[in-house]
Amino acid sequence: MNASKLKGSLLEYAVRRILLNCGFTKVRPDGLLIFDNGGLTMINGKGAAHDADVLMNPPIQMPFSYPYRLNFECKAYNKKVGLTIIRNALGLRYDINEFEIVTRRHLRERQNDRRSPLAIDNRQRFNYQVGVASVEDFTKPAFEFAANNKIPLISLRWFLPANICDSFHQITPAYLQRFTEQQLNDLHQFLKGNDNENATEFLRETESIFRNIYNSIIEFENRVLIGLLESGDLLFLISDNNNNDVEYLRNRNTIMTARFHYRRRTLDYWTLSVNQEVEFGFYLPSRIIEMWREQSFDSQAAISLKAELFSRVFVFVRNGELPFRILRIDRRWLNEINRNE
């Protein structure tokens, strides 16, 4: 077992746990279009079969469209992710979405205008979105390319403690020599989504970098929900109040009001107040930061952004009859601060 494989599996585990906690479900291989290969989940494309690091179904689907699936490519590099990786993600999205099964029999059937069966393979089709997840942040060109091509990005630096992110890069070949090959193999299987009692005991009982990262992931997932703006931008809503604020949203089925605030010293980190009772923090999506930067971070421009982009937030929850809660911006409050400006 090599260090890079374990680091990548740890990152995949973190992303998968966060999505599962917010109501996403794992895609099950069908044995043909999506299949298992030596512990890897492979998805067929036009040119080849690709390793799908984290392949999930969203909690809700859009009508009048093929169902959506989300695949995150996970990169546990010790440097910022650059433009090449994001371009590769765009190419992967094209390759798996444009894939179609066309056999010689299907081609011959097209020559017969009176044929009864359609000359296409009878299968369920999906729209695949491909994102990139990283331990480190992304370069500016990578951010810009991702925004222009609607590629979602996740960096653990955005929500896990700095020392936990740093510890990923302390998983080296020399460090792995402290453990047996069986321990590392069991851990790898567990991180890939397979039940393994030995790995569970290892993470619970053995002092290690793996246990520290694992505990941080579990602690974080109890404080985070994923919000979706009508523009398609994702928000990671983080509570500082253990999981009490998360439970507050989960236990309400009504539409709630939201107010958004920022501080001049941290313009990219905003807070969201729900019904003026609970509060979440979140980092502005890079695309919205760029829009605001173009207007010199003007306060009036911030009000306009709130009105245009944050009028409604769909927050995914794991339990309840509805898979999401709707937060509508408090219009009375928004009009009042607009008058004050």
Rank of each mutant, 00 (worst) to 15 (best):
E205P: 03
T206N: 12
Q183I: 08
R223C: 13
F220Q: 15
N242E: 15
L184D: 09
T172R: 11
Q183W: 07
N194A: 12
R211F: 05
L187E: 06
E205F: 12
S167L: 08
N222I: 00
I226N: 03
T180E: 08
L191A: 02
A199W: 05
D240F: 10
H169S: 12
F202R: 06
L234D: 04
L228C: 02
T172K: 06
I164V: 14
F168D: 05
N198T: 08
F190D: 01
Q183S: 14
L229V: 08
L235K: 07
I238M: 09
S155N: 06
L225A: 06
N241R: 06
D245P: 01
L229A: 06
L237E: 02
G227V: 04
L225W: 01
E207I: 09
V224C: 15
D166M: 08
K192S: 10
F190Y: 14
V246G: 00
H169A: 12
D186A: 13
E181Y: 06
E201R: 13
F220N: 13
T200I: 14
Q182C: 05
F190S: 01
Q183A: 13
Y214T: 03
A162Q: 12
N244H: 12
E230A: 11
Q170H: 15
R211P: 04
R157M: 09
F168A: 10
S216D: 11
E230M: 12
L235T: 04
F210G: 04
F159V: 10
L191Y: 01
D245G: 01
Q182M: 10
N194T: 13
D186P: 02
N196A: 00
I209C: 02
P173V: 02
F202M: 07
L176Q: 10
N198F: 08
I164R: 04
P173L: 08
R211I: 03
F190G: 04
N222A: 14
